[in-house]
Design a protein around this nucleic acid. Sequence first.
DNA 1: GTTCGGATTATCT
DNA 2: GATAATCCGAACC
Length: 202
Amino acid sequence: MQPLPRSFYARDTVDVARALLGKQLVRRTRAGLTSAVIVETEAYLEQDDPACHTFRGKTKRNAAMFGPPGDLYVYAIHARWCMNVVTAAEGIGDAVLIRAAEPLDGLNLMRERRQRTNERELTRGPARLCESMEVDGVLNGHDLTLGRRLWLCEPGEGSRGDGEIGVSPRIGISVNQAALLRFFLVANPFVSGPKRLNCSQR
DNA sequence: GTTCGGATTATCT
DNA sequence: GATAATCCGAACC
């Protein structure tokens, strides 16, 4: 459960988005430990990507995206939270949205937080994942390389974090829908979105 | 099984 | 005041 080093995040954002698939997301709070294996990500780029929050420059909300790689960017949308990993060099407003994961540890704690028992309802979709992991605005700007509160690591034995990687347009955006910047594990049932978008490409 | 529309709140213009 | 990188239940196939 050693946290991934900053060098993992300090490179091309699309490369990080792909590399994040299969990595383990770990959250420790006073209530206990929860973890899940990432199965779906989306890259957001400051350059040439109008769907990215930083496309029109720095604001109070998106400031964390310009921070050091390996920090967390948390934002609210439609009264819910979503978490992103900050990538590329400090000063570049790129990030990768963590859209979905497969629960690994602390399922009962996740069920308590979500008030749902069905496993797919726990971590399928960015806001569900945040609620299960108790991630909110308080963790905006959090350093993921410290191994405290929230971090990422190589998966343990027996996780289902491998398999074919699919590519598609991102979900829920109204601009730049042509960009193929969503990445997911094709065979994994915890991937979100309509089924036709989960068959790789297009 | 998939699609649709209403609810909801932080942030920006 | 409008907007949004969403969720969920209802309706339909």
